[in-house]
C-alpha cells in the first residue's frame, strides 16, 4: 500500500510539474510587474436582470382594451403551462363549460371550444404520457378563439377559415399520437389508450359533423 501511495503521489507531482511549471524563475522572490489581475468573467447580474424582467409571454402582450371573455380561460391555460395537475386542468374545463353555454349559438366558437375540451381531457387522462406537443395545440386553439372573439365583425367565412385551420392541426396531432407513433404511451401499464383514442375520435367526428352541417347551411343560405 505504501509503495502504491508513493506511486500516485509521484505520478501526480510529475503531472502537476508538467501542467504548472513556471518557466520564468519559479517562485522567486523577485517581484513581477504589479499588474492588477483583470477581472474575469463577471456575472452580469444587473444588466441581465433588466432583460429578464421584460414580460415575454405572448398571450400577455396582446392586451385588449376591454377585458376579453376569454380572460379566465387564458389564465387557466397559462396555469397549465406551469403545472399540469387535475385541479388546474379541471379549472380550465369548467371555464370551457361556461364559455360553451355562452357561445352555444356561435357554431365556430363552440366547435373550437369543443376542440379545447377534448385536448384538455386527453391531457388530463394521459398526464405524463401525453404527447409533448399537446400544450402547443391548446395554445394554438386558444389563439384561434381569441382572434374570433376579439373581432366581433368577423365574417363567418373568416371564422370558418380559422376553425378549419385548427381542425387540421388537431388532425395532424391525432396522427402523431395514433398507433403509428408509439411514443411514451405504451410504456405505462394500466392506462387504456384505446379508450382515450375513442373519446378523441368521437369528439373529432362530432366536430367534423357540425362543421360540415354549418358549411352546408351557409352554402344554402347564399
Amino acid at each position: 500500500m505504501a509503495t502504491n501511495k508513493d506511486d500516485i503521489t509521484s505520478d501526480l507531482d510529475n503531472r502537476l510539474d508538467e501542467l504548472f511549471g513556471e518557466d520564468d524563475g519559479e517562485d522567486s522572490f523577485v517581484p513581477e510587474k504589479k499588474e492588477k489581475p483583470q477581472p474575469i468573467k463577471q456575472s452580469k447580474a444587473s444588466s441581465d436582470a433588466k432583460e429578464a424582467a421584460k414580460p415575454k409571454q405572448k398571450a400577455v402582450q396582446k392586451q385588449q382594451p376591454m377585458q376579453s371573455p376569454l380572460e379566465n380561460l387564458k389564465s387557466s391555460m397559462l396555469e397549465m403551462d406551469w403545472e399540469l395537475t387535475d385541479e388546474v386542468i379541471g379549472k380550465f374545463l369548467s371555464e370551457i363549460d361556461k364559455l360553451k353555454t355562452k357561445y352555444s349559438s356561435d357554431k365556430m366558437i363552440f366547435s373550437l371550444l369543443q376542440l379545447h375540451e377534448s385536448m384538455a381531457k386527453y391531457i388530463r387522462s394521459k398526464k405524463i404520457n401525453a404527447h409533448p406537443d399537446s400544450m402547443k395545440l391548446v395554445h394554438s386553439v386558444f389563439e384561434g378563439l381569441d382572434k374570433i372573439i376579439a373581432a366581433p365583425n368577423m365574417t363567418e367565412d373568416e371564422k370558418k377559415k380559422i376553425a378549419v385551420g385548427e381542425l387540421k392541426l388537431f388532425k395532424a396531432f391525432k396522427q402523431k399520437i395514433g398507433p403509428a407513433v408509439k411514443g411514451a404511451a405504451p410504456r405505462i401499464e394500466g392506462i387504456d389508450i384505446e379508450a382515450i383514442r375513442k373519446v378523441i375520435k368521437a369528439e373529432l367526428s362530432l366536430f367534423k359533423e357540425e362543421l360540415l352541417k354549418e358549411m352546408k347551411s351557409m352554402r344554402i343560405g347564399r
Partner: peptide, 14 residues
C-alpha cells in the same frame, strides 16, 4: 421554448 414547463415538471417528478 418548445418544451412546456407543465410537462417538464411532470416528467422530472417521474
Amino acid at each position: 421554448k418548445d418544451v412546456s414547463l407543465g410537462f417538464l415538471r411532470l416528467k422530472t417528478a417521474e
